[in-house]
Design a protein around this nucleic acid. Structure first.
Length: 234
DNA sequence: GCGACAG
DNA sequence: ATCTTGTCGC
């Protein structure tokens, strides 16, 4: 887990083609006691440099109450290139993982899992590196085609790349843009969809993702609900 | 060459 | 992702 990190898309591509063989698609044996939301944000520094801010929120299942969260910052080294997002975001997330007191047994990652050109999106990358079950929860499509999804919450339609099912488009809330769900690691697609749907509490994003996203993007709505927000935290 | 393109 | 205000709808 501490090999030289890719610096170019060409190197990153080789890493993806090597690690994709480690992705395991199998049912989660039992629901873990803790699940987590993973997301990333960026901070421009005065000198023009950029810091990547990784956030992991841990929740008890099935109440989804927040039990802990960590924030880690690292210099941003990899550019944003569609298909190579994980190489830009993982370093900060791995650091945030090391800071956790309670290691969760399932990750809700912001981005694609196998619904990726080489079947190795950020959810697969994190799941394999940490060897923890992971689900890809993306807010928009990277690749694949699909029919329109019914407007009612809970509706789904398969995401296809040719004749291969690479994910599921899920309407997590009435009349809102659907979510793109895919397997990250150690879960089946049907399970992933069921878990995401079961983790939604009236909002478009499942709770873990919503909290991690709120903290990573520094939205006051979520920040003010944090246990100790009067101090000089994040 | 042209268009698409997670965050 | 980030830069940014108000506004339409349930």
């Amino acid at each position: 887990m501490n090999q030289p990190w890719p610096v170019s898309a060409a190197e990153a591509r080789k890493v993806q083609e090597l690690l994709r063989a480690d992705v395991i698609v199998a049912p989660l044996p039992a629901m873990p006691e803790f699940v987590a939301g993973v997301d990333v944000g960026f901070e421009k520094q005065g000198d023009g440099s950029v810091l990547t801010r990784g956030v992991i929120t841990v929740h008890r299942w099935p109440s989804l109450e927040l039990v802990e969260y960590t924030i880690a910052r690292v210099p941003t080294t990899f550019p944003y290139i569609p298909g190579f997002l994980s190489f830009r975001e993982c370093p900060a997330v791995l650091k945030a993982w090391e800071q956790l007191t309670t290691k969760p047994g399932l990750l809700f990652c912001d981005g694609q899992g196998m619904a990726h050109p080489r079947r190795f999106g950020v959810a697969c990358h994190l799941g394999v590196l940490l060897d923890v079950p992971a689900i890809g929860v993306a807010k928009s499509r990277l690749i694949g085609r699909h029919d329109d999804v019914a407007a009612m919450k809970g509706s789904t339609t398969p995401l296809l790349d040719g004749d291969e099912v690479i994910g599921t488009v899920l309407r997590s809330r009435n009349n809102v843009k659907p979510l793109y769900i895919s397997v990250g690691h150690r879960v089946t697609l049907d399970q992933a969809v069921e878990l995401v749907d079961g983790a939604c509490r009236g909002y478009r994003l499942p709770e873990p993702t919503r909290w991690a996203d709120g903290i990573a993007s520094r939205r006051s709505g979520i920040l003010k609900k944090l246990p100790e927000w009067n101090l000089e935290n994040s």
